[in-house]
Amino acid sequence: MATFPSVLIAVDKFKGSLSGAGLSEAIAEGMKDELGRSFEPLICPIADGGDGTVEAALAAGFREIMAPVSGPLGEPVEAQFAYEGLSQTAVIEVAEACGLWRMDSQQLDAVNSTTFGVGELILAALDAGARHIVVGLGGSATTDAGAGMLQALGVKILDDDGEPLRAGGGALLGAARVDVSGLDNRLDSIDFTVACDVTNPLLGSSGAAAVFGPQKGATEEQVLLLDRSLKHFSNLLELDMGVSRETFSIQEGAGAAGGLGFACLALGAKMRPGVDICFELTGFHQVLEHADVVITGEGKLDEQTLQGKGPAGVANAARAQHKRTLAVCGSNELTAQRAEKAGFERVFAVLDMEYEGHQVTLAESLKTPSHYVKLLGAEIARYLRESPN
């Protein structure tokens, strides 16, 4: 009888229904239902640098720290970040402070929303003792080129009367001067890394306002206003920093998170693919060495998954180590041929399941997601038992 392979579960979240940890647990429980309670898979939650990055760090042993910060419209909110004392590393998600998830569709305000809370999170990380700060860009409701973040960190953005400028990207057109001399000097001695998977510059037709503004509620007129405002602000900031115009604004990733990428670059941040950073934080590659089969996945498996998202990164890493990779998802839009080419031996999708005489519906899957994922876990166990090598 063939030995059952060792299994690593390395999944991202099912957005809106199951966290990475919850998804991992449900798959493991389903496999145990089929194989017996003594079966113990390896578990290493993953993320791609966006939401879920802090959760993955916490699962890897970081501790949670809560901090009072400003929300996207300046309202007080409690935001979390992850911190590991031995390495003095903090992991921050910008969406915790200024994320779209903190607003309903009627509240979206790309012109007036601010990243001030992101700066407050960075200050909280510095206060905790961080010497290495990782910031995950993604899911922001803002388009202020990181001006709010910079203000929280000590940068002055002043109007014609020498008064501090009000919050929001739209107000930046009224800036007369930027003064970086008050920037928190602790930033000079930290290693600052940004998890970013977009290559957009700050300005123009491929920039922060044009590409991402509409999904944050910006009208066509507001997109034009924001693009002018970001250009004006970026020129003033680069002037005060003593660098050539467009030194930071034309760099790849400057337009990420409504231009937060630009401000991070100005602070000396290094931009890296989110998946690579998350794998380092969680020790994924070391855990992978002990597995024969990897189970990965996320809510929807589609072409976007293959453009640098977590499951694609897992499949590539597993293939490099000659490991088998299975995918779990809510819905699958990849053909079998496309999935196999991407490194997925087989895809197990909740919405492809037959349950009690009918195909599972989206509404059913969202109502009790763990139940259906457990059933998929059991199906995977049977599949591996029938084809262990």
Rank of each mutant, 00 (worst) to 15 (best):
A363M: 08
Q359M: 01
K341E: 15
R346E: 13
F344G: 00
H358V: 02
A349Y: 08
E345I: 01
S365P: 10
H358G: 05
G357I: 04
Q359V: 02
L351G: 00
E340A: 12
E333T: 09
A363G: 05
Q337W: 01
E354S: 08
H358T: 00
A339V: 01
A363N: 10
F344M: 03
D352C: 01
A363Q: 14
Q337R: 08
V360S: 12
A349L: 00
E356H: 09
D352E: 12
V360T: 02
H358L: 00
L334C: 09
M353A: 06
E340L: 09
T368R: 13
E340R: 15
T368C: 11
K341I: 12
E356P: 10
E356I: 07
H358R: 01
V350K: 09
K341N: 11
A363V: 02
S365L: 14
F348G: 10
E340Y: 13
L351C: 05
A342D: 00
G357S: 14
A349N: 03
V350Y: 15
R346H: 14
F348W: 13
L351E: 06
K341S: 12
N332S: 03
E345A: 07
A339S: 11
R338S: 12
A349E: 01
A349H: 08
V360D: 08
G357D: 07
M353Q: 11
V350H: 15
T361V: 03
E354Y: 07
G357A: 10
N332Y: 07
E364M: 10
Q359R: 10
K367S: 09
V347L: 09
H358P: 00
Y355K: 08
V347I: 10
Q359C: 04
E333H: 15
V350I: 14
F344D: 03
